[in-house]
Structures are given as structure tokens and as C-alpha cells.
Design a binder for these strands. Structure first.
Lengths: 182, 182
DNA sequence: GTAGATAGTGATTGGCCACTAACTTGAGGG
DNA sequence: CCCTCAAGTTAGTGGCCAATCACTATCTAC
């Protein structure tokens, strides 16, 4: 039960990824996160300065994990082969909605923060995006257009998952045989 | 000042599109919408049964407007030419963030509603999506893969706009010369 | 001009939620 | 054994917000 603060923070980040993925930033209460962790709600504020900090940690972790998935799937590969391997791995993520939805929540939350005048959040989110984008780009050969195409199909996948299309729906048929494209 | 209920509803929908686009569903107060309309907050509940109904009306309008933009841009064209025309038109929308962000808010809000067990919302959102998707698909020749590619690049555009990339940023260079791809 | 309908407001409320403060519990070392 | 310090809790607060209710103002038709 009793853990070090560092271990607790880790489990808070994991719980936050799930809750924020499902409810969005405003739609997720710190109470819900605490309940999932199995800890009292006020204790979260000992571990993090505020709700926003929890969200940022979850967002960063989400992007890291996405890269980890890409990296493992494409280990030792380059170019077209790497792109195909990563595409397949991303398709596998469709199974656990939470990972993909947390990404979406990051994007729209950044947009809301920017609309509210908090531009620093936008900057840190763009750093995360570019970090992932460039690592993928290098892995598949360095071409900007190839990387753009890769991420374009990725964003469409996120959208179809958000809308709740099952994997055997016709909306997914446009991906078949779309070689190299996610 | 004084308008018919129908005219008021119309202006509420317009205001709601802007506010929801910037704040998301949970992050937008009915007070903010009412203020933008220039009407008292309680009056919104005379015009609509609740906040959710306002959001749904705004979402539907948003998709309609997107099709209108595509339709006008590609009038009289088909196939590749139509795709290019619509791509250009969508790129033009990057200027007014609100239209694109309202789309994103629709997708993540549906996801949240689904996570909360309200599946009917998902169904109506999928109807909107498929309506737009199929109209575009027909216009560009009927091929599923072409339509999928078109929307993939569209979703990436939405993401880059959400993250706040200016149009001259390197993140947009992968679109150049990507013929037919949005 | 007045009666009925339609447009619109002010005051309020009950619930939720991020965050704070003050207190309690428990493990390890001297 | 008890002291200390970190882990964790209970109770509470102030602010916000969707929704309701009772009311006022304005238009239209006769």
C-alpha cells in the first residue's frame, strides 16, 4: 500500500492517462484520478502542483510510449520497411483506445489553452510533437513528405477510433493495400 | 434586438460554434455563449432543451459548412481535379481556426460521451462523418482509398492547427507537391 | 385598446470541483 | 523505545455553472 512519492507519482501518471483519455481535461475530476490510483484526492496535490501538471505529465508519457511502440516495432529496420512495421504497430494500438485518445486530448487541450492565452503550453506540446515526428521521420528515411503521410494516416486512425468505428467497418477499408501508408 | 426564436437559434448556433471550438464542450459555459449572442444565459434554455443540444446543433452545422466549402470549391469538377480544389479550399480554412477546431471538439466529445456510456451520440456523429466522407468520395471519383487519403491529410491539418503551427513552419512543408493529397 | 402570444430577463439554487489546512499513521535508525 | 520524517487522510472552502422559476416587455390581431 504505502509507496515512495516517486512510485506514487508514477501510478498517478498511469491513472491520469486513462482518465484524461476518456474524459478530456475539463471532463476529468482529480477525484476520479485519485480513485483509480487508490489514494485520497487531496494527496494528488502533494505529488503534483496542480491538475494541469498531472495532465502535462500524462501527455508527455503518452508521447514517449508511442515512440517506444514505434521504436520496438521497427528495431533494425529503415525506410519503407520501418514505415510498414510502425504502421502495423500503430494499428495494433487501436485495440486500447486510451493511448490514442490521450493523444487527441493533448491536441485539443493545447488548442483550448492557446485560446485562453496560455502559449507556453502550446510550445511544450509542439516540442513533444516534433520530437516524435522527427524520430519517426529519421527512422523511415528522413523524407519530409513520407513522414507527413505517415502522420496523416495516424491522425485519421485517431479520429476513427474517437468516433468508435469497429475495425471491420467499411471506414477502415481505405487503408488496405495503401502500401507504406499507415 | 428582438428576433424570432428561429433567428435567435441561428445566432446561438453560430456563437456556439466559436465558443465550443475554443473551449471544448466542458470548457465552454452557457454563459459564454449567451454573452456572445447578446442574450441572457437562461434564455438559451428556452431555445434549446440543454447544453448538449446546443453542442449537437453546432457540430452538425460545422459539418454542413465544411461540405459547403468543398462543394463550392469543386463545383463542376470530378476526380483528381476535384480533390485538388477541395484540398486547396480546406487549406484556406486554416485561417479561421474555429471551423477546424469545432471538428476536433466533435470527435473528442463523442469519444468522451461514448466512454460515459452514451452511445447514441456516437451514432449521430458517425452519420455526420459518413455523410461528409461519402459526398467527398463520390466527388473525387468514388474510390475508397483516395477518399481515405484525402481525409487523412485533413485530420493532420486539424492537428497542426490545434498545435498552433503557423503556415510557414517546416511542419507544413510535407504537404507541398503532395499532389492530390490535401 | 386590449387580449393573447411570443421574446426576453433577474434572481436563485443545488451540485460539483480544484485546492488548502490541519491532523494521523507508520516505518526505520540511534 | 521513541523520535523523526515522509506518506497519507478527513474536513472544509470558495468559485463556477447548468438549469429552473417567476417575472417583464413587446408585438400582433381584432
Amino acid at each position: 500500500m504505502r509507496m515512495s512519492a516517486e512510485e506514487r507519482r508514477e501510478s498517478v501518471v498511469r491513472a491520469a492517462m486513462i482518465e484524461f483519455a476518456r474524459g478530456g481535461y475539463r471532463g476529468t475530476s482529480t477525484e476520479a484520478i485519485a480513485r483509480r490510483v487508490g489514494v485520497s484526492q487531496p494527496y494528488l496535490f502533494r505529488l503534483f502542483p496542480g491538475k494541469q501538471a498531472i495532465f502535462e505529465a500524462a501527455a508527455e508519457r503518452c508521447v514517449e510510449e508511442t515512440w517506444r511502440v514505434f521504436d520496438e516495432a521497427s528495431a533494425g529496420l529503415t525506410g519503407e520497411a520501418a514505415a510498414e512495421a510502425m504502421s502495423g504497430a500503430y494499428m495494433g494500438l487501436v485495440e486500447d483506445r486510451d493511448q490514442l485518445m490521450m493523444q487527441m486530448q493533448l491536441y485539443v487541450s493545447v488548442s483550448a489553452a492557446r485560446a485562453a492565452g496560455e502559449e507556453e503550453i502550446g510550445e511544450s506540446a509542439r516540442r513533444l510533437w516534433e520530437g516524435l515526428f522527427d524520430r519517426v521521420r529519421i527512422r523511415i528515411g528522413g523524407d519530409m513528405k513520407d513522414a507527413t503521410r505517415f502522420f496523416a494516416y495516424g491522425m485519421l486512425i485517431n479520429t476513427l477510433v474517437a468516433l468508435g468505428y469497429p475495425q471491420d467497418h467499411r471506414m477502415w477499408t481505405g487503408f488496405d493495400g495503401c502500401e507504406g501508408a499507415e
